[in-house]
Design a protein around this nucleic acid. Structure first.
Lengths: 205, 205
DNA sequence: ACCTGAACACCGTTCAAGT
DNA sequence: ACCTGAACACCGTTCAAGT
């Protein structure tokens, strides 16, 4: 910091933070054009480096995509955790968790595709599965709490979380695929969560 | 048929049925390597034609992918219709519909990705949406019947079908993404359908 | 340590030309 | 009507060489 280093922290790219710059630019392109529209050579051009430069930071194209997926899961998990820890009664928080998921999914559709695309490199695949589990665990934790309060049927919370996750993930897929027609997404979400929470509820004797 | 035509119906490709041959080969490659692994040039090589030949039958690569998606939806809809029309009580048929969907989805994961990938050409996109609706309509029809028998809560059957569809589609996504861990798919499916059907059930006053 | 330039083997797409 | 061959503009990946 005290010495005259070549501006590692900012500066017009070229140097130092190429890895971060690649990820940042890739994220924009992904959101705009999807994973298919993501080219390492185009990224390099955008950043003013040679087309071979990215290979210093990502072994291959898939490694970059995997890094994007990891970053996506990390952000998603933050949002889910925030929703799970929000103040209020447990069922409202479960619904909030579901809404947070649907919102994130439709706002970052190509990213979500990537996160679940199931064709990752062997290394990242383990990390991604781990991060996916974190989402499920957040849900399972809230479900266990609801069970403790007698609000949700008994049973393995992890398995019930899989069901809850399926519902909101599938709904997001329908929405992105334009299969919801004139149904406003918020209404479809509310209905799905009502059916889900009713189905999860402890059978009143 | 009576005249000496150049063996349109079979024959070692080369002639006549290139379009059908491309689709058939593409389907195999899709199942084995996913959409990313599908190259028009490789397809042409496999069939022993020049790399420019496919363009006579498919305007571009996306047109071929769209055709695959259309064929996939058509087959899926057949299976769903069969499940919906199976003998037996309505709730059992609804569960059968759900199981049929999950089975098809995990057996043809890359195809399903394509069907819902939402980046189709303008023309096919309408046809694909139409076919997607057919799946939903089949479900909605069965739900309406269940309502008539007093087994399912009141409400727009089309919207309830969206919820049902979301559940099974999302579950298939979890399964394909290896997020179900040691939970056998059949058990996860049964639990999801139990939660769903309980949530859909008419509240017993 | 990080980046460049050239090279290689692939792509999709187009278009004149063949049969 | 259907296919070929050449051409063009892109890719990802590798590797010697530069700084």
């Amino acid at each position: 910091m005290r010495r005259g280093e070549p501006a590692l922290t900012e500066g017009p790219y070229h140097h130092g933070n190429l890895r971060a710059a690649l990820l940042e630019r890739a994220e924009t392109v992904l959101a705009e054009s999807g994973a298919d529209g993501l080219s390492l050579r185009a990224l390099a051009r955008d950043l003013g480096v040679s087309h071979a430069a990215p290979s210093r930071h990502f072994r291959d194209r898939q490694a970059l995509l995997d890094a994007l997926a990891v970053s996506g899961f990390t952000r998603l998990n933050e949002r889910l955790r925030a929703a799970a820890e929000a103040p209020g009664p447990v069922p409202a928080r479960l619904a909030g968790l579901g809404r947070a998921y649907v919102e994130f999914a439709v706002a970052h559709a190509p990213l979500l595709d990537l996160m679940f695309s199931a064709k990752h490199a062997e290394d990242s695949s383990a990390e991604l599965r781990e991060l996916g589990h974190r989402s499920l665990d957040t849900t399972a934790g809230l479900i266990a709490r609801a069970q403790a309060e007698g609000l949700v049927r008994p049973g393995d919370p992890a398995r019930l979380a899989q069901v809850a996750f399926s519902t909101v993930h599938g709904l997001a897929t329908l929405a992105v695929g334009s299969l919801l027609d004139d149904t406003p997404l918020a209404e479809a979400t509310d209905l799905a969560l009502d059916v889900l929470l009713t189905g999860l509820a402890r059978p009143h004797r």
